[in-house]
Write a protein that binds this DNA or RNA. Structure first.
Lengths: 338, 338
DNA sequence: GCACTTGGTGGGAACGTTCCCACCTCGCCA
DNA sequence: TGGCGAGGTGGGAACGTTCCCACCAAGTGC
């Protein structure tokens, strides 16, 4: 029992004693339906437990009511990197109200990327959200060419033509460095993110700006490049200590790298914050629990998620709408490490 | 330029000088096609840059090649709880090979749950993965009634009829407690997960079993219930310290709660591990970075993800296949906290 | 030389919607 | 009384596939 055949719009029409079109109108909220007809249809729908088949609808409307969220897993950080989880949560929140489905695509390598563009070409999504884009990422361009609404969390460069949303990386980084200066630190190093990413370059620029502001030179010995991983943070810290043994502070472009850096400092016998002050970026939930608790630049990660989703929905609804560029504020959360 | 009209199977057929059906056969890898016809079709596909419309295909095959992964966000833990991220990663890995799309659904409240069952009824997914199920969760039963292939990470009870995959919670918990006993601890408390979840009850039972094994009584004063959150861990630790001030060890059913518990212990002036040894569960990536580093029961979270996905794919392919029940091994990772 | 298989092929129908258009029935105005 | 707009309605066509079936040609066995 139970199963039977799923009712279709025809079944409902027959039951309600009206035509297919009228049922469709009721479902889609058209006003051109008499009250009696509407009531009859609604009753039939309830009795039959009818749910419209969205695949059939999608075929004729060529809308799927779903969007893709693409996360590069090559940077294998979902899991150790709370940033992505928070973005996912934000996106999901913004989508929940609109009955739009979320397709999650973790892209590992080249092959999967092809699969991704295929899957987009197959018309399985109405739009795409891209997280963590690199400067020479081919994907945003491809999507743009396909005419598919696309919104980025982050940007390829300051000249990004696509709609995008990101935190105030420049201001956040500068605030971190100003804080270190105010604490009396004199040799302030930095561990950057990947320099083929705008976020990496911009946070580095923030470090430079704050130093310049204070009339200090940005010494090349004080810069090491990381890759947003813990191991990368350790490596970068090691090379900084070699190049500039007298450093007394580090601004690290992510909390995960900061954790690696602190581990390396401990290994080398440097105390945090006594010998070396450390400031991270992200204000991940674990920043409160490191030893010592990590000072960090807070960025509204979840809000980045809700915002890209909303911008995308808007762009899907009106493809002619002008591209948007939204910057969200950061704030410094001071803890024991600085 | 560029855009034009998307080619359909008809366009391809015309270009290749064959019928629609032959094109379809080539696409779907049927052997009943002559080599010439196949070559012509393949050439036409390449020239026209044709990609089949999966929505149209889905309408006739009533398959969508996508599965839903449902995560209760009411327990708002994606983000602070790496478990979910790892499961997502595993699921995505297993799905990547099969061109199956992943629909992520974070379910907050009752309303969204209705939306979920609707969206399933709308035939938007071929199967469902459920994570973190509670004893009286209505969802698994609903899905079962709808005849939709469903696989759980975890289970509602030991008698779970649906296919499910989980870690050896009983053995893992017992190993943790045995370890504490071996360390000479005598008053071993536990902070449990929610007791309306099998995972909560089973880890508690593991604690009991190990104590019984050692000829010790499982004193009710030594049990406090948590909710898998950090704040819950703090609360539980506080009530344990009140009820049993002489405790010298705690087995905590999750790392996140263990972090809370350790914070509370520090606040009360108890040293870890000198005064109180702490063991967590999950071996989250941050366990290495707590102060002191946290001893924890490792569970193969990502593998749980790949496994539920594989079981689900199997069940979609063959709905008559017997339900599976898979238990994955755990192991104890000893660090400074015990 | 005839029936009978077997590999290969293509057209019609179906999947369950929405959209376009034609139509019907009012009430209103000249 | 006749024309006309407007509210309400329903049937046909279309969306782009796959599946069923009919068909055709070239063998194969008697």
């Amino acid at each position: 029992m139970g199963g039977r055949q799923r009712p279709t719009i025809k079944t409902v029409a027959a039951r309600a004693g009206v035509g297919r079109t009228t049922v469709s109108r009721v479902i889609n909220g058209s006003t051109l339906v008499s009250d009696e007809a509407r009531a009859a249809v609604l009753a039939a729908i309830a009795e039959l437990n009818y749910v419209p088949n969205s695949v059939a609808r999608g075929l004729v409307t060529s809308r799927t009511n779903s969007v893709a969220l693409v996360i590069p897993e090559s940077e294998s950080r979902l899991g150790s990197e709370p940033y992505f989880s928070a973005v996912i949560r934000g996106v999901s929140t913004a989508l929940a109200d609109t009955r739009t489905q979320l397709q999650l695509m973790l892209v590992r390598d080249k092959g999967e990327q092809d699969q991704l563009t295929d899957s987009v070409a197959e018309r399985r999504v109405d739009g795409v959200l891209l997280v963590s884009v690199h400067e020479r990422d081919p994907l945003p361009g491809l999507l743009e060419d396909m005419g598919l609404p696309t919104v980025l969390a982050g940007r390829r460069s300051p000249a990004e033509p696509l709609s995008h949303v990101h935190a105030d990386n420049l201001g956040g980084a500068a605030a971190a460095v100003r804080h270190l200066i105010a604490r009396g630190r004199t040799e302030i190093a930095t561990i950057t993110g990947p320099l083929d990413m705008d976020v990496g370059r911009t946070r580095l620029q923030g470090w430079r700006d704050a130093l310049a502001e204070a009339g200090r030179a940005a010494d090349g010995r004080l810069v090491a490049t990381g890759d947003f991983t813990e191991a990368g943070g350790e490596r970068a810290m090691r090379s900084l200590l070699e190049a500039a043994p007298d450093l007394d502070a580090v601004f690290v472009a992510s909390d995960v790298m900061a954790v690696g850096a602190m581990a390396e400092l401990r290994r080398r016998g440097r105390r945090v914050p006594d010998d070396v002050a450390v400031v991270g970026f992200d204000d991940s939930f674990f920043a409160r629990h490191t030893d010592p608790p990590l000072t960090s630049v807070r960025q509204p990660t979840e809000e980045i998620g809700t915002t890209i989703a909303r911008v995308l929905l808007r762009e899907i609804a009106d493809p002619e709408a002008p591209r948007q560029h939204i910057v969200l504020p950061t704030s410094l959360v001071v803890r024991g490490s600085s």
